[in-house]
Amino acid sequence: MGCKEVTIIKYNAGNVFSMQSALERLGVKVTLSDREDVILNSERVIFPGVGQAASAMSYLKSKGLDNVIKQIKVPFLGVCLGMQLLCSSSEEGDVNCLGIINAKVKKFIGKEKIPHTGWNNVKIKDNVLFEGISELDYFYFVHSYYAEKTESTIAECDYINIFSASINKDNYYGVQFHPEKSSYSGAKILANFINI
């Protein structure tokens, strides 16, 4: 029946007020923390992020959070940059990331508008995170870098090229879009995550 509390990992990448509000609207208690004991004793962990990959990685390492994230056993959701940091490397600052998902993060190159900004639908695989979601659902994206499509991809998006809109390996989930900003469809994703 779903969890009652969620911890959002606190670090130097972007504001979390909207994510916190979105979760609270679903009736869960939200804790914002960068403490190992709090994160590792949480029922669910959300790893948000709007920022730059290399500076985020160096901050995580300086706080020892990279190792904390790798120890998490409960359902974990990386959002936007938080998803990209789960991958093996990023071209944004040419940095090695957490390496939980075997995928490279690359810069969009194309004549289309960059960043990829706005609402896009996705092509989904059967996964608990996307229960009740169809290709008629749109999600809000804002990003200039993308995670390549791999066997961990559970939803793909086609903008400039096909890329991972969502990934999953074991208890680790990631979404490139912002569920907290994606209206009803995004709220459904967060509710699914809470109910895993």
Partner: peptide, 11 residues
């Protein structure tokens, strides 16, 4: 702005 952000789920 805070009131908007806590109520509205679009950018």
């Amino acid at each position: 702005v805070k009131r908007i952000a806590s109520t509205i789920n679009i950018p």
